[in-house]
Computed example of a mutant assay.
Amino acid sequence: MPIDYTIKLNPQLSPFSFLYGIAVRFRNQLFDWGILPSEEYDIPVICVGNIAVGGTGKTPHTEYIIRLLQPRYKNKIAVLSRGYKRKTSGYILANEQTKSRDIGDEPYQIKQKFPQIQVAVDANRRRGIQHLLKLPEEIRPEIILLDDGFQHRYVTPSLNIVLTDYHRLMYLDKLMPVGRLREPKSGIRRADVIIVTKCASDIKPIDFRIIEDHIKVVAHQTVFFTTVRYGEIKPVFSKNALPWVKRDIRKNDDVLVVSGIASPDGFIREIKRYSNQVTTLTFPDHHTFSTKDIEKIKNTFEQFSSLEKLIIVTEKDAARLRDMTNIPDMIKKRLYYQPIMVDFIGKNRTRFDELIKEHILTFSKNKK
């Protein structure tokens, strides 16, 4: 797959981008000078963030790190997120009764997959970490994964991981609102690890080298590449579901794909591999589904003639839909979600695991 150098920009908004850049650079400089405080901690705080708005794959990469560390650290891992678009405020520690609307769809998804670990939300990351470190000893975290905290510079992570989407590489992008960059490209220098996400599985070695050259990594940085791996579809409402599995989707089945994520193209392409009759309904990222939306989904679905028709949503959408009480049973029976995971590819594909484990061990030794 060739690298796309034609990402959509809004050059007419350049004056606003210029002013935004001045403000962001000045703020970063205040942290660099020590005028604005940044706090360090006695346990590893690993930040998984990005330099642009939009979906770069932070949640599946966070989940990858949890899977990597959980065999050793069990329930001593915590994830701290802002909890984007939740209906609450302040610090909340998730439990079995917590809903998506309480903590946001991504933290909810993580808690559902990894119920043993601690998942908390707080827009004030310092306060959130302080709360986590005051938990009882038996569940107090030894490692904190900071979700989307690269620009939250009041916390100094022990390791900064920054993601950039292969289809919208950060060095081809521009500051908001011309492009999607949250801060100037020079901000990438704060990263210890850079991951190029959503690569094609058959990406060529020359593309690896081109991207690494353009990123212009410095001595302390390592670049990795990942691709998305899709799992078998699973029912959103297990009690109501029909006995479907992914391999049973036939080319002539009617499939309604519903997505409320930033970059749904890859998800839609995956479903089209299995069915020739795919209809799509797309909503904004982190969309809160309304009664009107459910009615639109129902009306679209009822127009399909196939007896084995079904609806497939993303994992994040499934998290929000589970909160809803007004979804008709006929929709619940046919409502499935597509889980995703990430695989590391390229020459450094095995190095990432070693790097994370080495970082934690080295950090712990240095703090003793």
Rank of each mutant, 00 (worst) to 15 (best):
D4K: 14
I7H: 09
L9E: 08
P11K: 11
Q12H: 11
Y20T: 03
I22A: 01
A23Y: 08
V24W: 00
V24F: 01
F26G: 03
R27L: 03
F31A: 10
F31I: 07
F31K: 07
F31D: 07
W33P: 03
G34S: 12
G34K: 12
L36N: 11
P37F: 04
E39G: 00
E39T: 14
P44Q: 02
V48F: 14
N50P: 06
N50Y: 03
I51M: 13
I51V: 15
P60S: 04
H61Y: 04
I66W: 01
R67K: 15
N75V: 07
L80I: 06
Y84Q: 12
K87Y: 05
A94P: 07
E96K: 15
T98L: 09
S100M: 01
R101F: 05
Q109M: 15
K111A: 13
I117L: 14
I117E: 05
Q118S: 15
R127D: 08
H131E: 09
H131W: 00
K134V: 00
L135M: 14
D147Q: 10
D148F: 10
G149K: 01
H152I: 08
V155F: 10
N160G: 02
I161P: 11
R168E: 13
L169N: 07
M170I: 15
Y171L: 09
L172V: 06
D173E: 13
L175H: 08
P177N: 10
R180N: 15
R182V: 09
E183G: 06
G187R: 08
R190I: 03
A191M: 14
V196G: 07
T197V: 02
K204I: 10
I206Y: 06
F208G: 01
I210S: 03
I210G: 00
E212L: 08
D213F: 11
H214N: 15
I215G: 01
H220P: 07
T226R: 05
A241I: 08
V245K: 14
K246T: 11
D254P: 10
L256K: 07
A262F: 01
A262R: 01
D265P: 00
F267D: 02
Y274H: 15
Y274Q: 07
Y274N: 07
N276R: 13
L281T: 05
T282I: 11
D285Q: 08
D293S: 13
K296H: 13
I297C: 06
K298Y: 14
Q303A: 11
K309N: 05
L310H: 04
I311M: 05
E315V: 05
K316P: 01
D317R: 11
D323A: 07
D323R: 05
I327R: 00
M330P: 01
I331F: 09
P339I: 12
D343M: 06
D343T: 11
F344V: 10
F344N: 10
I345D: 05
K347F: 12
N348P: 02
T350K: 13
F352G: 01
E354G: 00
I356G: 00
K357I: 15
E358F: 04
H359I: 10
H359P: 06
L361W: 07
S364G: 00
K368S: 13
